[in-house]
Design a protein around this nucleic acid. Structure first.
Lengths: 360, 360
DNA sequence: ATCTTAGCTGAATCGTGCA
DNA sequence: TTGCACGATTCAGCTAAGA
């Protein structure tokens, strides 16, 4: 129950102006669900405030696309400014707008990491039978630049998917039933996103305590899931009516207990153990023979933690690579010791070292 | 240059120049598989040490995003000119290029009708564990303009999908095995598309006798399927080696009787539900204790869908097996939640997930 | 002949930390 | 900034060889 009210902020206002007031490099993750209906002339204002004015069809369409692009570039510019260098940006859209958004964020220097398909299990049919049932929406996940580092909880995603790598297509139902926010019995927001979708995004690309921003808050799904997962949150929304819904909803959301927020981390997060530490603690002794699983090569442990194979000596990794004539090798899993005729990877010894010497 | 029947033509040359020589409004359907501009780095190694056979061909290299955009605008301009007013344009791509292509074709006046996701049933994994498995490609289907009429064989698509409307996500395997064109035992083209994909496109958006154009012919999949379905065809390809493959392939393709259409793939088996989906939907919450029927073991659910038993964490199946010291375990029936003193297998929650979220 | 298993491969923007 | 050592990391389907 760590999340204090101060960690969950909703700001009423225009998303571009509001983001302009936030400090640079202060946000870990941005999830954006921008408007995509290009025909809503009233929704699309030129930066100087004038309304898009239709002249004839062709001109109007060009002008609408251009105005939408300008709007997209403007909010992406602010998003980029307030995003930390290792932060992530997610945008969701449909074929009406996602190609323009994707091109604009590439132009702005963002580096696409994946496009994700939200495959709706229960989409609305195409009633007229004139096209394919539009059964998905597209999300783009990107880092701040080509070389930028970014957060990705690979093992948590794998755990969430029954120990198979999480794919770029996600089958998730539409937000319906009890989860759908209602006002006077009618849906409170036309495009409320399912919490399952945001749960996956936030679990994949942020950690507890991170600052998450949603510049197009709407009914507040991102805020509700951020609170549930112990993330800090800022939501920006222009419409007072939506803010009322989101505030009520986020207030009702409950953070899960902190120790349940633990996720699978994988070996990269574990303390590094030099092979030599096994010798220093007597878990392995100089002179011990090492061999690969098929006993094709046989090396010998030396007192300084190097191993010798024929005339060559070096680290468990280097000699493993040399033996196979491979560019690299994980010596921990390649080399084995033999006990009573059974082979055991030296990684088991590293495991023992960690529990016996590093646990406390 | 031309292959057997007069209406199957392959032209060697640059696609823009060649299209410029074709008459205006002469083509019913264009299927384009342009270079993706992948921008790959160095070699990529699989975990076991082998190297991924990457697309490193010169034809996929562009100096900049701007150069790629210019190329895209140029071929789209010619495509637009030679397309009949009620013709259709399909383009396939990945996140590397598809957003630029989509924006460019909207700018050129094309009207997007659907974006289609080719969901690969057997994609290459992400070997380094750095991103989501890139498991799909995207196709854009558009008409010549907003008001243009276009061809769509709605009932053929519905029949192909067990009398359900064809959706915008198509599950189709990669082109492998006997279908994959080989030269000297090696793949003839790095990006050969599966015939199932083109079959669906051509069946949906053209009729027998229509003129189909593929400006980036490659190994000739579009031509082979066009012939099979009794469509006329023009393919354009720059590389002589690919033309040789495509000519041989198209020559071997046989037109089918139109009533002998390939049977549609049945609906997939009952959807697999990852344990993590229960968390995403709130059917179970992080921190919930799980126990076996005899309450001998007690584990705790974590936010990523793994469960923790003592110091160990992993999938419901793995931890169930570990607890009993068994080689395997069905976690769905082994683990239970407790409500008012009564134990209930988590399989009941999976059942609820299926009825509440996957039924429609 | 039939079953099992090892091996290979597919449009891929595929690492981190310290000296 | 660059260089180098450490050592993390894979799914489905087909094919050919072995049992």
């Amino acid at each position: 129950m760590a999340s204090a009210p101060m960690d969950m902020t909703i700001i009423q206002g225009d998303c571009i102006e509001t983001m302009a007031g936030l400090p640079a490099k202060s946000v870990d993750l941005i999830f954006a669900d921008p408007p995509y209906n290009l025909q809503l002339g009233g929704d699309l204002l030129r930066p100087e405030g004038s309304t898009v004015d239709a002249v004839d069809d062709a001109w109007d369409k060009f002008d609408s696309l251009g105005a939408y692009d300008q709007f997209t570039r403007a909010w992406l510019t602010e998003a980029r400014r307030i995003l930390k260098d290792d932060g992530g940006l997610w945008v969701i859209g449909s074929y009406h707008n996602i190609f323009r958004v994707g091109a604009a964020l590439q132009d702005a220097g963002f580096w696409i990491l994946n496009d994700i398909v939200w495959r709706k299990t229960n989409p609305m049919p195409n009633f007229k039978g004139t096209r394919f049932t539009n059964a998905h929406e597209t999300l783009i996940w990107c880092a701040k630049s080509e070389k930028a580092r970014y957060k990705f909880n690979y093992h948590a995603m794998k755990a969430l998917n029954d120990d198979l790598q999480m794919r770029s297509d996600w089958s998730i139902p539409l937000c319906t039933g009890a989860e759908r926010e209602k006002v006077n019995g009618r849906k409170a927001h036309p495009t409320q996103k399912p919490e399952e979708l945001l749960y996956r995004v936030l679990l994949a690309c942020s950690e507890p305590g991170d600052m998450v921003l949603d510049p197009f808050l709407g009914s507040g799904t991102t805020g509700a899931v951020a609170k549930r997962l112990g993330r800090r949150f800022i939501g920006i929304e222009r419409e007072e009516a939506y803010i009322a819904v989101a505030e009520r909803r986020i207030a009702a959301s409950r953070q899960v207990e902190m120790d349940a927020l633990e996720i699978s981390r994988g070996r990269r997060a574990e303390a590094r153990v030099p092979f030599g530490a096994l010798l220093e603690t007597g878990l392995i002794t100089p002179g011990t023979p090492l061999m690969d699983l098929k006993r094709r090569w046989r090396a010998q442990v030396r007192a300084d933690g190097s191993i010798a194979l024929g005339k060559e000596a070096g680290s468990i990794h280097k000699i493993g690579a040399r033996a196979q004539n491979a560019p690299s090798c994980n010596g921990w899993t390649f080399w084995h010791t033999e006990t009573a005729g059974k082979l055991q990877p030296i990684d088991m010894l590293r495991e023992r070292y960690r529990t016996e010497h590093l646990s406390a």
